[in-house]
Design a protein around this nucleic acid. Structure first.
Lengths: 163, 163
DNA sequence: TTTCCAGTGGGCAACCTGACCAGTGATATG
DNA sequence: CATATCACTGGTCAGGTTGCCCACTGGAAA
């Protein structure tokens, strides 16, 4: 079914939702200048498409007492990948894990209560047999926090031609 | 301001919201077995605390036509940091940017329409004077997608003692 | 003891949702 | 050309939810 293109209206819906997440379908249709049913249908489609995965609460780890973020590049012993994945999944401070090409085999995002606490987290992460080596980079600043709107706008424009 | 501890009830609220984001305060209070006002007040506090940053839609880049994710480690020429940050902020495919300690100076998350397209994105990213060198790791699998619930539970348990 | 705070349980009007429906214009399809 | 199909409009409806109010309770701190 080709790529799930989105048009400008879809883009505006996502933008609106990003700016004011608690907005209802009715208010949304008013701002967009379309009928409520249309806004409803578009939103339903975006969700069943998988373009919008959900509206989960965005929790700030810092506010939870975990102000330190780090990225760790892990080198894995051959054939231990599955075990390492399972191990890392049990560590709450591992927020995200990817397997990658390149120098390391895996990349994970960690948080900790302090720089000192990061040592504990890293020990727990690498204290597992399949992990050969770990290189950690502590995050100092976050000039661009995780964002999606510019990409949504790009995608909406791209598909505008054949729409 | 001490650390913004959360207790078990807060933890359950966040968990509930994560599982069923479209749930209302009334239904939430029913599930939690507390009065509606309590659920309301807790939720308000979590939001003004900054623990819950918002309820923005989670958009899947893959569904938008960007199925390829990569991480790039950038080395920056001394004193060019601010310029590079500004440059990267203008690239829609840059989803996230951090300045870090360690081998590189910055780490950014990229998406692209294909492996071939990733070349275009990287060219655009590094086609800027202040960037000395870039090392890119393409994401193959994502065994642990960005998550927060385990950490929330951890935080809720930790503060349960002195609560 | 008094005050403060979080929580309870209830009530109220206004609003929103999900579900319908008939009608319209544009775009395929025969 | 006639006919489906599709997305959209604009409207209705009952039922649920929200935001706001109130009085009351129990625990903790001053």
């Amino acid at each position: 079914m080709a790529v799930t293109g989105i048009d400008r209206l879809d883009g505006r819906i996502i933008g609106l939702l990003a700016r004011e997440p608690r907005i209802g379908v009715l208010e949304m249709s008013r701002r967009l200048g379309v009928a409520r049913g249309t806004a409803q249908a578009r939103l339903d489609r975006l969700q069943s498409n998988g373009v919008i995965r959900g509206f989960g609460p965005e929790v700030d780890p810092a506010a939870l007492g975990y102000p330190v973020t780090a990225f760790a590049t892990l080198e894995i012993r051959q054939g231990q990948g599955a075990d390492v994945r399972a191990h890392l999944a049990t560590v709450p401070e591992v927020l995200e894990l990817h397997t990658t090409t390149g120098t390391g085999d895996m990349l994970c995002r960690l948080v900790a209560r302090s720089n000192a606490d990061l040592q504990r987290v890293i020990d727990r992460v690498v204290g597992f047999d399949g992990i050969v080596r770990a290189a950690t980079a502590i995050v100092m600043e976050n000039p661009v926090p995780l964002r999606i709107i510019p990409l949504v706008e790009q995608a909406a424009e791209d598909s505008a031609g054949h729409d």
